[in-house]
Design a protein around this nucleic acid. Structure first.
Length: 821
RNA sequence: GCCCGGGUGGCGGAAUCGGUAGACGCAAGGGACUCAAAAUCCCUCAUGCUUCGGCAUAUACGAGUUCGAGUCUCGUCCCGGGUACCA
């Protein structure tokens, strides 16, 4: 801007060149370290976190960027409020996605990931995020996963990591383990061979020990309600009872324990079912039934996990054994079926076909008796059931001896008491939450730091020997030579036992990617510190995270695992807090052609060329304007032009204010009123992530500003530049500089609003007759009811709807008057 | 099936506590400027009637509560997401 004379002004006033402005400020931010936070000294810490992405080869897409910009607007706003905001960024680069992609393109993930990361960083910088790049994290770097392995060892030390046999999906043709998402319709996605299940010895974390605490703490968290609900459902607390059924077999007495949430229906239990994996299967199975049972066991063991869990067709086999129903004293048959899961409850159920859909279906298939023990309103106790009656709110107990006539709720209590007396049952609380299996028979992850010694068993790798480095191997493909790719590399897995020094064998499985991401937020502030996973003073200063923004697809696993790991470290005395994220908000999804934008749907849009064409500021603001941040919206590139127009006008207004020779220190009262209303509105909207309405409010103000003939003055324009800064940071910096300020606008604070200036003298009072709006009156703001009624009745256009004086008057001061005739 | 969301003009959306439905933006139509186009600027823009003053109807559908309902209650239909034999 070397020659601000009228002849050139038009060109400058209309439109601006985003690439020049944005390049200038991105360089300035880097050179001046504007976005670098002094984590040790900052007086007013605010940790603004966004979920780190998996750095795909295609690059960051619009859906990712939407989430990041939303987080960035929040972070920048907090900084403008005067906080020392720490906004880090990193990469969740281990895992099956990267590995599969590497296999597909025939490259090694270790070569691929650095390129992808460089590309992501370029995109994020180009989008103008306020990221502190001095504290970035890459989960595949040994500097990072050294501490992931350390976290594993801490859980082991606490007795929270253990090994057990567990089923995995196995492709008999590829001779490899498949992840659930690689099983398509019960077959291997690559060779279409039917998948089987196979038992492997795997590492688990005892997250189920924390079920009650993970559930209870949810009440105190400032999180999206949908996310908390999803976690509650996942943890799945059920109150019920455990009941014992006695089996007399070969002269011995055995007891089968079942879990039920409906002890009130025990009189209707006409048979028992145990899971195929139940330890008592062999004991219970009698001679002639053995062959059929064995066949059934083989069959259900072969079926893959996905199909077995999704098919609802009932299959089963009779064991030959009978148990005694402790309520009725009757003998009932014991069956085996895979609709009963060994992982939940006791792996055995009492079947009440009259009042459970699954039991009903099973009873129909095998011709087992169905007994009604609950009646709905107006139903006869003897009426047959043509489907299970599961509604229990108004149910009344029948056919249950002395419990008849009780409500379901009362009977639950009374029947459990009766069973307790007989020593045949007691109340129990069960959780759906299973222990977390962290073993992966894969290459692309951190090796689990364990060494197996013939003499000493599973020996943890000493902490001083971490990291256990993942070797660069050419044949990382899980092929037919064995289970885990690392198990093919003797030179790697043969190591001396840390305890006795004799030759031993490393664990060749790697850990789950979710373990990498379950603690990364602890690492960010301590990046660069080599001696520890996280510096205690720094961590307790910056965490828990003030604001966490991410996708609801991680509502359960990632967020739950992070909470679990944090709780364990808290219990070990390593952290002062036990919940990692004070506030969490889930953003919405970006829809393109009617579907969520995702690689699998094939509808991703890469933002680069939009940013090139319209500028990062316009693109960011457009993304925030297209719909409510927490709901997402349609990506339709046509609408970007409206936002660009707004920024052009902002540029033009500031330019003319700067150049205008007239009075620039005062403003038009109407404009100033709108300005102060806008400052209030934007300041209210941003914290509740109502970004779309914040942008709309700024546009409205811009329309008011441009209404008059005269050029805008500095007082009218300067606060608007500050309000726009979180959305359009580059142009805001540039205009801030044009307005004669030095230093970053982000260190200049947020404009304050004056309540008195924001209020107007006169208001429009809506006047209704019988609830229908018939007109409006321009009246003083503080008009009272009588004065308002008097004015209204004088208006012929209003009074014509009334035949006489109003019988009832509803007056809402400052808003409306309703005359009821 | 179950659990969450959601359904408002041609389109994206707004209406924060039950108080003027359609802010803001896009698209469309008209006009100004221009040799022309782009850009820019101005105007119109829910629907139907209209004597051009207005009037009526409208927030998926049907009931209800209320002076007043997009908003609350009950029922029905549709769409999106999550989850799934959890006893």
């Amino acid at each position: 801007m070397d020659n601000p004379v009228n002849s050139t002004r038009n060109d400058e006033a209309i439109g601006y060149d985003p690439s020049a402005v944005e390049g200038k400020w991105q360089n300035a931010w880097r050179d001046r370290e504007t976005n670098t936070t002094d984590v040790a000294a900052a007086p007013d810490p605010f940790y603004a976190l966004m979920m780190f992405p998996y750095p795909s080869a295609e690059g960051l897409h619009v859906g990712n960027l939407f989430a990041f910009v939303g987080g960035d607007v929040y972070g920048r706003f907090q900084r403008l409020q005067g906080h020392n905001v720490f906004e880090p960024f990193g990469y969740d680069a281990f895992g099956i996605h990267s590995e599969n992609y590497a296999l597909k393109v025939g490259k090694h993930p270790m070569d691929l990931i650095p390129q992808n990361i460089a590309n992501f960083r370029r995109q994020v910088e180009r989008a103008g995020l306020m990221v502190d790049w001095s504290k970035s994290v890459d989960t595949t770097s040994p500097d990072y996963y050294k501490w992931t392995q350390w976290v594993f060892l801490q859980l082991l030390k606490q007795g929270l990591a253990y090994k057990k046999q567990a089923a995995v999906n196995w492709c008999p043709s590829c001779k490899t383990v498949l992840a659930n998402e690689q099983v398509v319709g019960g077959a291997c996605e690559r060779c279409d061979t039917p998948v089987e299940q196979r038992l492997l010895s795997q590492w688990f974390f005892r997250i189920s020990n924390y079920a009650q605490r993970l559930l209870a703490n949810l009440d105190g968290l400032d999180w999206s309600e949908t996310t908390r609900t999803a976690q509650r459902n996942w943890i799945g607390r059920s109150e019920g009872a455990e009941i014992s059924f006695t089996v007399t077999k070969n002269g011995g007495e055995h007891s089968i324990r079942v879990f039920t949430t409906r002890p009130d229906t025990v009189f209707g239990a006409t048979y028992l079912v145990i899971a195929p994996e139940h330890p008592m299967v062999a004991t219970l199975t009698g001679g002639v039934y053995r062959t059929a049972v064995d066949q059934y066991l083989v069959r259900s063991a072969k079926q893959d996990l996905v199909t077995r869990k999704s098919s609802t067709e009932k299959t089963g086999v009779f064991t030959g054994a009978y148990a005694t129903n402790p309520a009725t004293g009757k003998e009932i048959p014991v069956w085996i079926s895979d609709y009963v899961l060994m992982e939940y409850g006791t792996g055995a159920i009492m079947a009440v076909p009259g009042h459970d859909d699954r039991d009903f279906e099973f009873a129909k298939v095998f011709g087992l008796p169905i007994v009604r023990v609950v009646c709905g309103e107006g139903e006869e106790p003897s009426a047959p059931l043509d489907e299970a009656f599961t509604g229990n709110e108004r149910g009344i107990i029948v056919n249950s001896g002395r419990f008849d006539g009780m409500t379901v709720a009362t009977a639950k209590r009374e029947i459990v008491a009766m069973l307790e007396e007989k020593k045949a049952g007691h109340p129990v609380i069960n959780y759906r939450l299973h222990d977390w299996c962290i073993s992966r028979q894969r290459y692309w992850g951190p090796p689990i730091p364990i060494i197996y010694c013939d003499e000493h068993g599973a020996v943890p790798v000493p902490e001083k020997d971490l990291p256990v480095v993942l070797p660069y191997v050419e044949d990382f493909k899980p092929d037919d030579s064995g289970i885990s790719p690392l198990a093919r590399h003797e030179d790697w897995y043969c190591v001396p036992c840390p305890t006795c020094g004799k030759m031993a064998r490393r664990e060749t499985d790697v850990s789950d990617t979710f373990l990498d991401s379950a603690w990364y937020f602890l690492r960010y502030p301590s990046v660069g510190i080599d001696e520890t996973a996280f510096d205690s003073a720094i961590t307790n200063r910056w965490l828990p995270v003030n604001s966490y923004i991410g996708g609801n697809e991680h509502a359960v696993l990632h967020l739950l695992y992070s909470r679990f790991v944090t709780m364990v470290l808290h219990d070990m005395g390593l952290l002062e807090f036990e919940e990692p994220f004070t506030r969490f908000r889930a953003h919405g999804l970006i829809i393109r052609n009617g579907a969520k934008m995702s690689k699998s749907k094939g509808n991703v849009v890469i933002p680069d060329h939009y940013i090139e064409k319209w500028g990062a500021d316009a693109f960011r603001t457009y993304l925030m304007f297209l719909g409510p941040f927490e709901e997402g919206g349609d990506f339709r590139d046509a609408s970007i032009s409206g936002v660009k127009r707004f920024l052009d006008r902002l540029w033009a207004s500031v330019t003319s204010a700067v150049e205008s020779p007239g009075d620039s220190s005062s403003g038009d009262p109407d404009v100033l009123r709108k300005l102060h209303q806008t400052i209030r509105k934007v300041g209210d909207d941003i914290p509740r992530l109502s970004y779309n309405t914040a942008v709309a409010a700024m546009m409205e103000y811009m329309n008011v500003l441009r209404r008059g003939e005269r050029a805008a003055s500095r007082v009218e324009v300067t606060p608007l530049v500050q309000l726009a800064a979180p959305f359009a940071p580059h142009i805001a910096e540039e205009l801030w500089e044009k307005l004669g300020n030095s230093g970053s606008i982000f260190d200049a604070g947020w404009p304050s609003f004056d309540e008195a200036l924001a209020a107007s003298e006169r208001i429009d009072l809506a006047v209704q007759v019988n609830g229908k709006t018939r007109g409006k009156l321009s009246v003083p703001r503080d008009i009272d009811q009588d004065a308002a009624v008097g004015l209204a009745m004088k208006e012929e256009s209003i009074s014509k709807f009334l035949s006489g004086p109003a019988k009832k008057i509803v007056f809402v001061p400052g808003r409306l008057l309703n005359l009821v005739g």
